[in-house]
Simulated assay, not measured.
Amino acid sequence: MTVRLRGTGLTVRVGEGRAILDEASIDVRAGEVHALVGPNGAGKSTLFGVLAGDVVPQAGTVELDGAPVTGIRSRTLAQQRAVLLQENTVTFPFTAEQVVRMGRAPWARTAAADDDDAVVAEAMASTEVVPLGGRAVTSLSGGERARVALARVLAQRTGILLLDEPTAALDLKHHEDVMRLIRAQAAAGVAVAIVLHDLNAALAHADRATLLSNGRVVASGPPAEVLTAERIEEVYGQPVDVFPHPVTGVPLVVARR
Rank of each mutant, 00 (worst) to 15 (best):
R101H: 07
Q86C: 02
R147G: 01
G60A: 02
V69S: 11
A78S: 14
Q238W: 06
T210K: 01
D116L: 06
G143N: 07
R75H: 10
P106G: 11
M1D: 08
V254N: 05
E23S: 15
L163E: 05
S213P: 00
M102N: 04
V190R: 02
L84G: 06
G103T: 12
Q185N: 09
A78L: 10
L150T: 09
Q156I: 08
L172I: 14
V192C: 04
V55Y: 00
D27Q: 12
I26A: 07
V178K: 07
L132N: 01
N214W: 04
T138C: 04
G221T: 04
W107Q: 12
E233N: 10
L51W: 01
D171P: 11
G15W: 07
I232P: 01
R104N: 09
A19N: 01
A125E: 13
Q238R: 13
R73C: 09
V137P: 00
L84M: 10
H174E: 13
S220N: 10
A78P: 11
L36H: 12
A186T: 06
T8V: 14
L132T: 00
G103S: 12
T138Y: 04
M102Q: 09
E176S: 09
G159E: 15
G133T: 00
V69G: 12
I160M: 09
V33H: 07
H245Y: 09
I160N: 07
A52S: 10
A188L: 07
G133H: 05
L161S: 06
T95L: 02
L252V: 11
R135V: 01
A78M: 09
A125F: 04
M124I: 05
G7F: 06
L252Y: 00
H197Q: 14
T95S: 15
A35L: 12
A204C: 05
P131Q: 10
G38F: 14
P57W: 00
P251T: 12
T210L: 05
G249N: 12
A219V: 08
A204Y: 03
V218N: 13
P39M: 13
T2L: 10
H174A: 12
Q185H: 11
G17H: 11
R13I: 11
G9M: 01
A186N: 07
V148F: 01
E122P: 00
T228P: 04
E63L: 15
L51H: 00
R81E: 04
V253K: 04
D198G: 13
V50I: 07
V50H: 05
I72T: 14
S220C: 14
G215Q: 01
R257F: 10
L170F: 11
A121W: 02
R104G: 05
T89H: 15
